[in-house]
Nucleic acid binder design. Structure first.
Length: 401
DNA sequence: TAACCGTGGAG
DNA sequence: TCTCCAAGGTT
């Protein structure tokens, strides 16, 4: 069998396998390009089983591009809470606004236009165009690279961007006439169900007969993929400051970067693990650093530790409780914050404290720094939190989910 | 190019 | 417990 025949056979058999039966997924029940789009964004680096409930809630709340474009951002983030990679949500809404304004609310059936939308890269544009419009565009994700690496016995490192470009060329050649959407989904379906990362199920594979990787006995060692760097450890000190009325001090993260615009307990990075782990230096560092930001708290009780692993960071979070959280500059509680009024942060701490009343009931002058808020249980449930803080606060508010 | 960006399931 | 990594994109 020559090379062309091998490719043709692969495509025909794979497509037939897919059409014989595939998974019943929510976004496959619709031909709405918007639904395809939403699903593809959610599926970036995220498993199908995880996405399904999020997808259902999302399209129920935002049934059209226009609904999404007009929604408050906090509403969109709340529907993304727990799914991770939150810039996807903000980019999706920004793109929905662009589709509404420039394309009248309809996803354009056009390669350049789709590729130009925020959050849509080479994979996602190919997926949208092929699945929604049956355009013969490749959609090369991790599944596809694994399948092609094995079937064609390709040794290139799939972690390198250049390899994906090459795979796209190959995948483009493989698309059967008039069947781009089904074929691209077939490739991914095979990778997800049969040609799995470990222990591929070659015995039940529809294309095993001509699979060069299997024939070479290399199905377990392909694809070649260089290892990712381990996440960098970071030791963080957080404060759970409780007001007399039960409200807790929280703050919203900046609009850019990690966990952008999500809510969290105030926390700072410890200068080292020793400070983090010290019952004296830890809370002192926490109070002094927050004082410099204009927040006066007196952390006294170690409530517990939490751990959270991101793709590139490993957080060790120590949570300190602060009762009657706020101090008054010249009052008795000022001494509960060692050095705050004397050392480096003295001026800032004094300035901060001026806004609080003596009883620790909260603000007397409404001068919490930008982004900070006293929240109750209802606020906690309405706002969007990263998982690590949602767990901590769920415990505090009595299991509220 | 390489770093940045979350979370959870599977083995 | 630990490692891998999933329907990637942006900077």
């Amino acid at each position: 069998m020559n090379e062309l025949e091998a490719k043709t056979t692969f495509s025909r058999e794979l497509l037939a396998w897919y059409r014989r039966g595939n998974r019943d997924l929510p976004w496959r029940r619709s031909r709405d390009p918007y639904f395809i789009w939403v699903s593809e964004i959610m599926l970036q680096q995220t498993r199908v089983d995880t996405v399904i409930p999020y997808f259902n809630r999302f399209v129920e709340r935002f049934p059209t591009v226009k609904d999404l474009a007009e929604a408050p951002e906090e509403d969109v983030l709340k529907h993304w809470e727990g799914l991770g990679y939150y810039s996807r949500a903000r980019n999706l809404q920004a793109a929905a606004k662009e589709v509404t304004e420039r394309y009248g609310g309809r996803i354009p059936d056009d390669v350049e236009a789709v590729r130009g939308l925020k959050g849509v890269g080479p994979y996602t544009s190919g997926a949208i165009l092929s699945i929604a419009f049956n355009r013969p565009e490749p959609a090369v994700d991790g599944n596809v690279m694994r399948v092609l690496s094995r079937y064609f016995c390709i040794d290139e490192d799939i972690a390198k961007p250049a390899t994906r470009v090459g795979m796209e060329g190959l995948a483009r050649e493989l698309i059967p006439e008039g069947a781009a959407g089904d074929f691209n989904q077939a490739l991914m379906e095979l990778g997800a169900l049969v040609c799995t990362p470990r222990s591929p199920h070659c015995l039940t594979c529809p294309v095993m007969e001509h699979c060069a990787g299997r024939i070479a006995g290399r199905e377990e060692e392909l694809p070649v993929k260089s290892k990712a760097k381990p996440p960098k450890p970071q030791h963080r000190l957080a404060v759970l400051a409780k007001r007399a009325d039960g409200r807790v001090l929280a703050r919203q993260r900046p609009a850019q970067g990690l966990l952008a615009r999500l809510w969290e307990l105030p926390h700072v990075e410890a200068p080292g693990v020793d400070t983090w782990d010290s019952a004296e230096a830890g809370p002192r560092w926490l109070a002094e650093t927050l004082a410099l930001e204009g927040v006066g708290v007196a952390p006294t009780r170690h409530l517990g530790d939490a751990e959270h692993v991101f793709s590139h960071l490993h957080w060790y979070v120590r949570v300190w409780g602060a009762e009657g959280a706020l101090f008054e500059a010249d009052g008795p509680e000022a001494s509960a914050l060692p050095m705050a009024a004397s050392a480096a942060g003295g001026d800032a701490a004094r300035e901060t404290a001026a806004g609080y009343d003596a009883a620790g009931e909260g603000l007397s002058g409404g001068s919490l720094p930008e982004g900070y808020r006293w929240i109750d249980r209802a606020d906690f449930e309405a706002l969007a939190w990263p998982n690590v803080f949602r767990k901590i606060l769920a415990e505090h508010f009595g299991g509220a989910e």
